[in-house]
Design a protein around this nucleic acid. Structure first.
Lengths: 96, 96, 96, 96
DNA sequence: CACTGGAAAATGCCGC
DNA sequence: GCGGCATTTTCCAGTG
């Protein structure tokens, strides 16, 4: 759109193009990450579990514990699984 | 949560049970839909295409509302841009 | 589209309409569920935690345990958190 | 996972570290994009509308490929329907 | 600072 | 059983 726009139109178009360029790179990185998960799968790793691990590592440890405590509190409040050993597994669930 | 083992626990359990009931119904509907696709397949219709059609129709329907929102936004913005060609620019891009 | 179609066209349209009807009901249930979560929020419950609870209850307990074990195994394999209290707790839990 | 604490653990750690590196870069790009929107705002552009435009352009781009897939599907199905009015029906619906 | 809407991620499902 | 697609769920930034 060569001459419909004035200065501001050029600026706007420039901004949008810069954004689109960055978004394209961002998408590329997403694809690269997928590739690594594929490689992991080929090496017989469990991909969903790996994703949980990555997420745990990204999370702040204090928040993780706080979540755990709340989860446990809620389980208790509704009397969930009170006669099973599953309560012990609470910690792992917080990360999911 | 105010009171773990008292009234709040009852309320929490009640909420969760209501949710689970609705989720069960929702799942049932999903199964019913699958059944219809099976029936379609038995009648020699091409199921993937049927799904595309259903999807298209849903998208088109959703888009009507979306278009309204978009127009709304544009009208709002035109006040700012009314003495520049930018309004036109935005419209042209959105419609292209 | 009254007379473009023959018998098969009628059948196809009928199938699609039944599907769309069920999908509408399904969507409605989804909205109802959202409403309950809103009510929960108004009652000062932590909605994300509630969702975890609902999910836990939906899951098969054996699968849950299996997941836990794998997660723990992976944490160990990469030496994750081995010098933190959370890590010790998890290790203890896994070993018992 | 073959060998928890041996070579497989090294492989797992390596995969995870590569993923985390890419995620960091990805996050950086997200921040860069935000910066551009900030710049736009400083230049008195309407950011929500810009986002709409970017989104529209991305959708339109995606739709081109989608349309191709759809046509592909339709061509495939036409063999089955070529002596009925159903092909027309599908086309009409998709185009409406 | 809670809420809404939009982007991103995860889950589940389907055909090959 | 694997990869791709669609849906659902989760997350997060902007807004009042």
């Amino acid at each position: 759109m060569p001459d419909v726009s004035g200065i501001a139109g050029d600026k706007l178009r420039s901004l949008i193009e810069r954004i689109e360029k960055l978004e394209a790179e961002k998408k590329q990185l997403g694809d690269d990450i997928k590739d690594i998960y594929s490689e992991a799968k080929r090496n017989h790793f469990d991909v969903p579990i790996m994703k949980k691990i990555v997420r745990e590592r990204r999370m702040n440890k204090d928040d993780l514990e706080e979540q755990q405590n709340l989860l446990e509190l809620y389980r208790k409040a509704i009397g969930m699984w009170e006669d099973t050993p599953l309560g012990e597994y609470a910690f792992a669930d917080a990360a999911e």
